[in-house]
Computed example of a mutant assay.
Amino acid sequence: MPHDIVNGHIGHHHHHPHDHNHSHDPDHLHSHLKPEDEAAELQVLATQFIDGFVHAADKTAYLRLAGVPFEKPGKGGETALKLVDVELKTDWQVGTASPSFGSRELSHLPYPGSMVQERTNMSLVYVSMDAKETVDIRNFIAERQHT
């Protein structure tokens, strides 16, 4: 047990329980991010995933290495859904709009050129004879992180 010498006296460190919403078993060594930090981390991971996919010489191999399922069960035990497309969508944020005080009109703030930001997102498209399901890559990554 560690000891501290304070004002000439040896003190002992004691573990005091602290209130959190999760248990502290000996294997509990991971940290917890604030929701806004988790969102930022997820965006970084998604951006890197998309960049890797775009530059991969073999797109199918990249998806397999990343653990993307090429088939998944349909809802309610229906026939399996098959991965058929990977969609990339790029948006350019050129401004913001927010509610104006005391008006139904939006307050619009266009960005100067240096503030315009590109946002690319990826979706995995699964189909069966009866259904189509689109999975946002950020949801796929988030589920992988929590398993």
Rank of each mutant, 00 (worst) to 15 (best):
86 V>N: 05
118 E>I: 11
123 S>F: 07
15 H>A: 07
30 H>F: 13
65 L>N: 15
63 L>S: 05
11 G>F: 11
131 A>D: 12
58 D>I: 01
98 S>Y: 06
3 H>Y: 13
117 Q>E: 10
147 T>E: 15
75 K>M: 12
145 Q>G: 01
26 P>L: 06
66 A>K: 14
126 Y>C: 00
136 D>Y: 05
35 P>W: 06
83 L>I: 01
104 R>M: 11
18 H>C: 10
73 P>W: 08
125 V>Q: 02
96 T>S: 06
20 H>D: 12
44 V>Q: 10
41 E>M: 15
106 L>H: 06
124 L>T: 00
60 T>K: 13
56 A>Y: 01
28 H>E: 15
39 A>I: 07
87 E>R: 09
116 V>L: 04
145 Q>I: 12
129 M>T: 11
70 F>D: 01
92 W>L: 14
87 E>K: 10
51 D>M: 04
75 K>Q: 12
68 V>R: 05
110 P>K: 01
125 V>F: 00
1 M>C: 05
137 I>Y: 04
57 A>S: 13
36 E>V: 10
76 G>N: 07
130 D>Q: 05
47 T>M: 03
103 S>D: 01
74 G>N: 05
28 H>L: 14
146 H>R: 15
97 A>G: 10
29 L>D: 15
77 G>S: 07
30 H>A: 12
142 A>L: 09
35 P>V: 12
27 D>T: 02
139 N>L: 05
108 H>D: 10
